[in-house]
């Protein structure tokens, strides 16, 4: 006997993510999920962001890695609450990991919650974490064809942050082509260019965050 269905494979993850999203919206917390390959500069961008924030701001970070708490230690220096999610093998964060790591935190008072996903341009795509916005980072050292190679990742993103633009003189990277490729996959996507080394573009990144508060 054949039973037709339309059951989402990740329905349990989606259920938890929906509850998180409802909670973030109710409390006015802007939650952003940062996705990129390893080494594209997620942690560096967060370091620069936290360093620029007034200490009174209510900001927290959950940072995911397969192993080590290096990123949490890097980020904790800025005085905001930071927690490491060590996935122990999983190549992405899922909503239940986020939910578990928020216990006994003053989540409901946060204005911004950054979720730094595990460095991976594929698997994090499928997992809704309850975020309001999803930002994909792409460093100029990686090549401008990444949006075409990983269309699912860019298709589900609200923002692309092109990072390490201080390296442009040294790498064969066309900013124009990178922008065109991202827009082919997701015509409505916003695009920013930053360098965490020179500080270029960090103002626009902060404006983007500010707009969501």
């Amino acid at each position: 006997m054949r039973v037709p269905l339309e059951r989402k494979v990740l329905s349990e993850n989606d259920r938890i993510a929906a509850a998180l999203r409802e909670r973030f919206q109710r409390n006015g917390t802007f939650c952003v999920n940062l996705i990129s390959s390893p080494g594209s500069g997620k942690t560096s961008l967060l370091e620069r962001t936290l360093a620029g924030f007034d200490a009174a701001r209510r900001v927290a970070v959950l940072t995911g890695d397969i192993q080590t708490d290096n990123d949490a230690r890097r980020l904790a220096r800025y005085g905001f609450p930071v927690r490491q999610i060590t996935t122990g093998g999983a190549c992405h964060l899922d909503a239940s990991m986020v939910e578990r790591h928020l216990t006994d935190w003053p989540v409901d008072e946060l204005e911004i919650l950054f979720l730094e996903n595990v460095g991976n341009l594929v698997c994090p795509t499928s997992y809704d974490l309850g975020e309001e916005a999803r930002a994909v980072l792409l460093s100029v050292a990686e090549g401008e064809d990444k949006p075409l190679k990983y269309p699912a990742t860019f298709h589900h993103a609200d923002l692309v942050v092109l990072t390490k633009i201080d390296l442009l003189p040294y790498v064969p990277f066309s900013m124009e082509l990178a922008r065109e490729n991202a827009r082919r996959v997701q015509p409505e996507i916003e695009i920013l260019e930053v360098s965490c080394t020179s500080g270029a573009g960090l103002g626009q990144w902060n404006d983007w965050i500010q707009r969501h508060l």
Binding site: M1, R2, V3, P4, L5, K8
Partner: peptide
């Protein structure tokens, strides 16, 4: 990403 049918004994 969905389960579209099951065949049951």
């Amino acid at each position: 990403m969905e389960l579209s049918y099951l065949e049951l004994e």
